[in-house]
């Protein structure tokens, strides 16, 4: 295998996951929170594919493709919710959407 060892991919994946997690925790716009969730899913995908290359089996890549399909489903539902919010003319701010708070 040419190029960097798997450790480099693990560290890169951890950095990406941290960036996405910070986006989810710090931002208040639900659209940007969805985009940050995509970053987190993709960091997991990178790690799955790196480990699949390390062990020489295709199972990790199968997992990564399944994660992509689940991410597409998640985006459909999340964007549907955001469009439903937008139709009601509420401000897109997760701190102000507190109708469900007990």
């Amino acid at each position: 295998m040419h190029g960097p060892d798997i450790q480099w991919y693990v560290v890169l994946s951890a950095l990406l996951f941290t960036t996405g997690a910070l986006g989810v925790m710090l931002r208040r716009n639900p659209l940007i929170i969805l985009l940050s969730v995509e970053i987190m899913l993709n960091s997991a995908n990178l790690l799955l594919i790196a480990m699949s290359r390390l062990h020489g089996g295709e199972d990790g890549q199968i997992f990564a493709i399944s994660v992509m399909a689940v991410a597409a489903a998640e985006v459909v539902v999340g964007l549907g919710l955001i469009v439903a919010l937008g139709r009601r003319n509420v401000e897109l701010d997760v701190d102000k959407l507190r109708t469900l708070r007990g």
């Binding site: 925790m25 931002r27 659209l31 969805l34 992509m68 469009v83 401000e91």
Partner: peptide
Amino acid sequence: VYGGAVMVMFLFVIAYLGDRTDESPWSG
């Protein structure tokens, strides 16, 4: 799938909703 289909959906929804938030980026 990601760079094509999913991101087109994102951009379509963002353009549909328009700019209706006035948050500064790091004021969570």
